[in-house]
Amino acid sequence: MRDWKEKLKRWIETLSARASNPALFLAAAVILSASHLLESRLRARAASLGPVLRTVAESREGLREMEEEYRPLTELRVHDVNQLKGGILKLTQSRKQVFEAGLSLEEEKRVLEKQWEIMSTYLQLDEDARKIHLMRGDQSLESYSVSVSTPRAFGGVAEPIPNIVQITSKERFAYPERGSYQEAGGQLVWTPPQVGTSVRANALGEFVTFTNGPLILHGPPRKPEEHAAFPHYCLELSLATARKLFLNTFIGTRVVLKPQKPARQD
């Protein structure tokens, strides 16, 4: 311990002997002036930061005010948009329903009208006026002239003509033989209607409307002699009348040849 103290004392004495007093004084002066300079600079910088800090605080305050203004505005707008979206959704759904109901109604109306047209249309022969009327209910829609007042028999047809017959098929061009459908050996055998120059085709010509009786409505025959030989009842229609009847009647349309008179009441 004593050695250590002795060593320290000797080292200090050596150091004191080496350094001269003016050098020490100079060093101290330099350090002091540097410190003073640093202090004044720091003080000046700190003083200059004050206004900046105040500006920042003011700006921050301005932004806070702006935020306070915009936040409720934005919330209001978000609310408006959500409300509008909900409203548009409901409106669209409701309008879609109205639109679909309208479409469905139009579709039903069209189908029912056409169905009723088929159900209520019939042809009525007016013997006195030599006309055939296209009737719907009690109303005559169109009237066509016919050459004969009553259907004429051709080809030695023996079958009596009923008062009311029904249209069963139509052929735009009279086929040589009608189509048929039958089952043979558990299989469907369908013989399609054909077109050619057979007696049937020559006799009936174009716009041929067949009934479930012996009456056939058709245009002028290709060969009158073959027409005369073909067994059927005929109204000897012109091509134009046969065409109109062909186009304006349906499968299933009734042809009333002799309207039933109401019973006499005494």
Partner: peptide, 15 residues
């Protein structure tokens, strides 16, 4: 060849 004619129409009516 033969002059035969076919019209491909589905007729209207009650079947």
């Amino acid at each position: 060849g033969t002059g035969r004619r076919w019209q491909f129409v589905t007729p209207r009516g009650e079947f």
